[in-house]
Design a protein around this nucleic acid. Structure first.
Length: 522
RNA sequence: CGGGGCGUAGCGCAGUCUGGUAGCGCACCUGGUUCGGGACCAGGGGGUCGGAGGUUCGAAUCCUCUCGCCCCGACCA
């Protein structure tokens, strides 16, 4: 009996059929994470966590190279701390988990209830972000201008009681890093803000193979309590924008709230200027939606948990020892190669599974290279190499020495190929638009099916007068927001020289100094 | 939190209207034939039908209340 309908793709539905469902299926097929019994919280599985560890390692190196030190602050924040900065309260109050008791007792109907006698005098908030608790520490650390700048980073989990969650993109608890710095001058704090935005841009482009547009947010999109928020924005394959990272210039708002004061050389007392900046496990969602295809995950080699899987092919048990010996030796040779700051990471999959199943499993997990080794290869001193950026059936025989000698350049080639592909896609779907009707049409799906609109839109480079009313109008009518006022990240794009043109606001027609990025977003 | 949909084996589903004591495909295990490949034959294991109450001789099925997930909206890294 022949299989009735062999699907042409490993992931069902495809991106074009149902992008949101495709995303979920890729996460599952690649074994990255799953929903946990805890509302809105995910279990990050080994393959997914390994990606996060790679993100962490590379970023951590970059933070340290720019002078930052890691530290750790409490998970719980006294409610009164959060109340210190008015805008901050407004931004986060609605999504805070609150700890009110410190003991459980047996309840009337069995089970446990919080002990009424053990209610906390002051509730504690599970940190949604740590500006206030770190601010309190900074206040006691900083006395003199000689104590500045203070350059701290924290790797931590935070919790925001999100109403609608999606694995990696928005979970109630997520992992991130938050940099917090304090400076003696505004100029220096602003410089720090931009420096870290630059670090994120470099990381996105060189490690995630993701082109990003960077620049300031509008006031409406600003971090609660910040003077200026800057971001890096990437385009997903459904052409929606995803913010990959943010860097905030906090002015003196938080130092005023937390009392971060220092004595200057001139013996005056001044408030420090602070910044904060962060990226989260959301980056993994970004990776998935930027690069993956209808056969599953595609990983940039620089962040892949492993670069190559060796798949032994046996013809009966008698060939097994020779093949395994060959594979083990090959693995050793490969691991001696260095790819970037890491060695070449090799998986050996000798599980007693059918070859086809194994191949597809690794395709779905997005490993960059699959290498088959069978008796014929042992005899010919060769390998069969398949690349994740090519078709699933496409493979090529290579002399073993050539493969070992060229694996690093193959991985580099894949890495840059992925960036170029993502860049071409983003540039293609970024359009200068001046006419309001064209703008509306750009963001309106053509299909009449309400719940499953086709992939449409992209980044509209349009003029905005700066009036929040015009911004709100676009948001209300089209669900489109201003992602950022572009300052860079688009050199060489066909439309690059049109960004800084003067023009007329696409909503009201008043004059505008430059184009901004409008898009639907995650 | 508002609107819609859905919770039945690891995954995908049927059965629910018209209560009668749980089934299909894939996955998993065993044996065999295959196999540089998303096999085939035979046999087998696995489910308190999301949870709690209720109606009934009898509930996956009817009623009430809950919890969770997905999609759309508001909010957001």
């Amino acid at each position: 009996m022949a299989k009735p309908e062999t699907p042409k793709t490993a992931i069902t539905p495809t991106r074009a059929q149902d992008y949101a469902e495709w995303y979920q299926q890729v996460v599952r097929a690649a074994d990255l994470a799953e929903n946990s019994p805890v509302r809105g919280c995910m279990v990050i599985k080994p393959w997914g966590y390994a990606i996060w560890e790679n993100i962490q390692r590379e970023l951590d190196t970059m933070f340290k190279e720019t002078g930052h030190k890691n530290a750790y602050f409490p998970l719980l924040i006294p409610k009164s701390f959060l109340e210190k900065e008015a805008a901050h309260v407004d931004g986060f109050a609605k999504e805070c988990a609150v700890v009110t008791h410190h003991r459980l007792v047996a309840g009337p109907n069995g089970g446990l209830i919080p002990d009424p006698k053990a209610e906390l005098e002051e509730p504690l908030i599970i940190r949604p972000t740590s500006e206030t608790i770190i601010g309190a520490a900074f206040a006691s650390w900083v006395q003199s201008y000689r104590d500045l700048p203070l350059l701290i980073n924290q790797w931590a989990n935070v919790m925001r009681w999100e109403l609608r969650t999606r694995l990696f993109l928005r979970t109630a608890e997520f992992l991130w890093q938050e940099g917090h710095t304090a400076h003696s001058t505004e100029a220096e704090a602003r410089e720090e803000t931009m420096k870290m935005l630059g670090v994120y841009t470099t990381f996105a482009e060189e490690y995630m193979a993701t082109p990003v547009i960077y620049g300031p947010k509008t006031a409406a999109e600003r971090f609660p309590g910040a003077v200026d928020t800057f971001c890096i924005e990437a385009m997903m394959q459904d052409r929606k924008a995803l913010q990959d990272g943010t860097s905030h210039f906090l002015g003196q708002n938080f130092s005023r709230a937390s009392g971060i004061e220092f004595q200057t050389k001139e013996e005056t007392r001044e408030l420090a200027w602070t910044t904060s900046w962060g990226v989260s496990t959301r980056l993994i969602g970004s990776l998935i939606m930027t690069h993956s295809d209808d056969d599953g995950l595609v990983l940039p080699p620089r962040l892949a948990p492993a670069h190559v899987v060796l798949l032994p092919v046996f013809r009966g048990d008698e060939s097994k020892p020779a093949v395994m010996e060959y594979i083990n030796a090959l693995a050793k040779e490969l691991r001696q190669q260095r790819f970037g700051e890491r060695r070449v990471e090799v998986e050996i999959d000798a599980r007693d599974l059918r070859g086809g199943d194994k191949q597809w499993e690794w395709i779905k997990k997005g490993i960059p290279l699959r290498v088959e080794v069978g008796p014929r290869d042992v005899e010919a001193n060769a390998v069969m190499v398949a690349r994740r950026d090519r078709g699933p059936k496409e493979k090529a025989a290579m002399p073993r020495a050539d493969f070992v000698g060229s694996i690093v350049s193959i991985l580099n080639d894949m890495q840059s190929g992925m960036f170029q592909k993502a860049l071409a896609y983003r540039n293609e779907h970024t359009k200068p638009i001046d006419d309001k009707r064209e703008f509306d049409a750009f963001f309106t799906p053509k299909s009449k099916v309400e719940d499953k609109a086709e992939i449409h839109g992209g980044f509209a480079l349009s003029h905005w007068c700066g009036d929040p009313t015009c911004e709100a109008h676009v948001k209300d009518s089209l669900k489109v927001t201003i992602r950022c006022v572009p300052q860079g990240g688009y050199a060489g794009a066909p439309w690059a020289d049109r960004v800084e043109e003067q023009g007329a606001c696409v909503v009201c027609g008043k004059s505008s100094p430059q184009r901004v990025v409008f898009a639907k977003s995650y």
